[in-house]
Amino acid sequence: MTGTPRIDRVVTSGTFSLDGGTWDVDNNVWIIGDDDDVVVVDAAHDAEAIQEAVAGRRVTAIICTHAHDDHINAAAALASATTAPVKLHPADDELWQRVYPGTTYQPLTDGEEIDVAGLTLKVLHTPGHAPGAVCLHIPELSALFSGDTLFQGGPGATGRSFSSFPTIIDSITDHLLTLPPDTVVHPGHGDTTTIGAEAPHRQEWIDRGH
């Protein structure tokens, strides 16, 4: 292990398509590790830009927080360039197959631990935005990588296929709001927040129902 473990962010731009609609989106791609080894969370849109940010370090895994196309559409190219495995919760297989028909990935499981650069990323299965949505908790860095499960201002969207508002509320309540309040939330889009900043608003989210 070389250097202090750190979190790098790359913002990539492209589109998200589901249920017959297409939207322009900016995605956060998170690179976690040290000067030697990293994992990439959500390889979105632009494999070359992600490789530039990796800067020659060894990619040990490409972790998908879920399989909406904007979060995985650079995963295969990045995996080919780095020989790193792609990891995804199998509950999102149908969404994955829409982008990469007939291909496979390494299945993620709830509670699984992924080690990189002296850090341990714990997989939390948090369905709701998508059936196979996961978050990654790193206690050593007081960090949570929430994909599209939790944002600054509330839960991820649940108005499209494969999603459920009651389920995402349960996931956030049971798995995320129980984390230390100073845990920094690094989402799939937009700015970071903290568990402590979001927790007091749970009832407001439920009251507005989205």
Rank of each mutant, 00 (worst) to 15 (best):
A197S: 13
P5L: 04
D34S: 07
L119S: 12
A53C: 06
C135P: 05
A55I: 10
L124K: 02
P127R: 04
W23D: 07
G154F: 03
D93E: 14
G56D: 12
W23I: 09
R202L: 10
D36K: 11
R6P: 09
M1G: 15
G190P: 04
T82S: 15
A133T: 14
G147Y: 11
S17M: 04
T109V: 11
T65V: 13
L121W: 00
L144M: 10
L121K: 00
R208F: 15
T103I: 00
T183N: 00
H68F: 12
T178P: 01
H68R: 11
T103N: 04
G209H: 06
Q203K: 13
P181K: 11
A67K: 01
A43T: 13
A67S: 10
A91C: 02
I138C: 13
P187L: 10
A84W: 03
V40S: 01
F16I: 05
I32N: 02
G209Y: 06
T12M: 06
T149E: 11
T126H: 10
D92R: 08
G128K: 10
Q106L: 15
I172W: 11
A47M: 03
P107L: 07
D8I: 03
A55F: 09
A44Y: 07
T167D: 15
I31R: 01
A199E: 12
F151Q: 01
R98H: 09
I172Q: 04
S161G: 14
N73F: 04
D110T: 05
V29F: 09
A130I: 03
S171P: 11
D170K: 14
T83V: 07
D115K: 13
H186S: 02
P107Q: 06
E140V: 03
H129E: 12
L121A: 00
W23K: 08
H210P: 00
I32S: 06
P127L: 09
E198L: 09
H186C: 01
G118D: 08
P127G: 08
D8Q: 14
I168R: 09
T65Y: 13
D42P: 09
T183Q: 01
L18C: 10
G21M: 14
A47D: 07
F16E: 12
L150V: 09
G21W: 12
S146Y: 04
P127V: 06
L176S: 09
V123W: 10
W96F: 15
Y105G: 12
P181R: 10
H201I: 02
W96K: 06
I7V: 14
N27A: 14
L108V: 01
E113Y: 01
G33I: 07
E48L: 05
A117R: 08
L177S: 08
P180S: 05
G111V: 04
I206D: 00
D182R: 09
V39E: 07
I168T: 07
